[in-house]
Design a binder for these strands. Structure first.
Lengths: 201, 201
DNA sequence: TCCAAATGTAGGCAGCGATAACAATGTAGT
DNA sequence: ACTACATTGTTATCGCTGCCTACATTTGGA
């Protein structure tokens, strides 16, 4: 039998992986660096080599989350059709899919925002996400499928809807099946909100 | 000079008040029972007489929050006009006002929802809040100012919008002034979503 | 080859939530 | 008024946590 080597080999990513699991299973409050170390099989102080503080680990998790989410949304747009309705639907579904599968992580991602000493990278990651949505709206305007208006002001409701549906699904007062049924309704709601004023429905 | 009496007199509410202050100032994670006890001037174990666990205190705070919010929203409806647009605007502004002033508390209120052992009272309080919105929509339908559709399905987008705007305002990627400007836009967005299909704008 | 950086360990600190055993106070029944 | 009891405090202790400093091992480049 082989003794455990002095160096773990890939402690950092082992910690991240395990941390995400426990985050999903038991929430961020229950996450303990010492426990992670125990389960990975290193000393209690070992994690500090890779994450100075617990918050640093959480930030790293959040960064990874933004990365994955942005990737997924980008990919869903690549695979979507051309019309605004198609693209918005794809984007929304992709976002909501991520939210459903990574609720606690998403909480973490947004929860760090209002902290004054959130890292620059985190803020940048959030902006990349926002730009994805803004571009979508702008494109819709170019195609004449979104009514006129300032871009920033128009982007807000989309985020509002996505974010709202997310937080309701995660922690709100609606049962999961009702949310599921409501997704289409909500997407339709969004589309109606963006539709240019026309004389015929 | 009078010595501190053995009994505090109103420790329970003193704890709640102080807890809400620190919650607002430093978030729920930084809230320590021992510290509360220290600041109130009692022994570290004294709070346990009123709140068996820290979570119990947080739950009590959340309950109080629901009570205040429901009250504020009800009052705003009483003072509002008769049209659906007026009433929805009043409700939304009232909700958003509370959210702006009690962000961390609102997080707490909703955060407890998905916990399997959340108290019955808490769940009931959430339902009362939801009913307020449902009634509003139903009334709008009766007045012919809201398009047809199942009530539950129609209520969802309203909550989605309120919740979304809230969570964006609290922790999202938008600056406060942009949110402020976006409130009207978002309310208009909601109204447009609820409007019955008509031939003339 | 040797030295420095990276990565792990050992030990200790203060703070936390929770609990048990005990003390003071308030209260209700007689 | 006395007493029995419930309420609300205190003291002491447990195991846990995050974090820090000092030391050990390993790795990799000059």
């Amino acid at each position: 039998m082989k003794a455990r080597p002095y160096h773990h080999g890939d402690l950092r990513s082992a910690l991240l992986t395990l941390a995400e699991d426990t985050l999903r299973a038991r929430g961020p409050a229950e996450l303990s660096l010492r426990e992670l170390a125990r389960e990975v099989g290193v000393s209690p102080a070992a994690p500090s080599r890779h994450f100075k503080t617990k918050q640093a680990l959480l930030d790293a998790l959040a960064m990874e989350g933004f990365h994955r989410l942005t990737l997924a949304m980008g990919r869903s747009l690549d695979e979507a059709g051309e019309t605004f309705a198609q693209r918005l639907t794809a984007l929304a579904r992709s976002y909501l899919g991520f939210a459903a599968a990574n609720g606690a992580l998403l909480d973490l991602m947004y929860g760090r925002k209002h902290d004054p000493d959130a890292s620059t990278e985190l803020i940048a990651a959030m902006h990349r996400l926002k730009d994805l949505a803004t571009d979508l709206i702008a494109d819709g305007q170019r195609r004449g499928e979104v009514r006129a208006g300032h871009l920033d002001l128009l982007t807000l409701p989309l985020f509002v809807a996505l974010q709202g549906l997310t937080s309701l699904a995660l922690s709100g007062g609606f049962p999961a099946d009702q949310i599921e049924a409501g997704v289409d309704e909500t997407i339709a709601f969004i589309l109606r909100g963006y539709a240019p004023d026309v004389r015929s429905p």
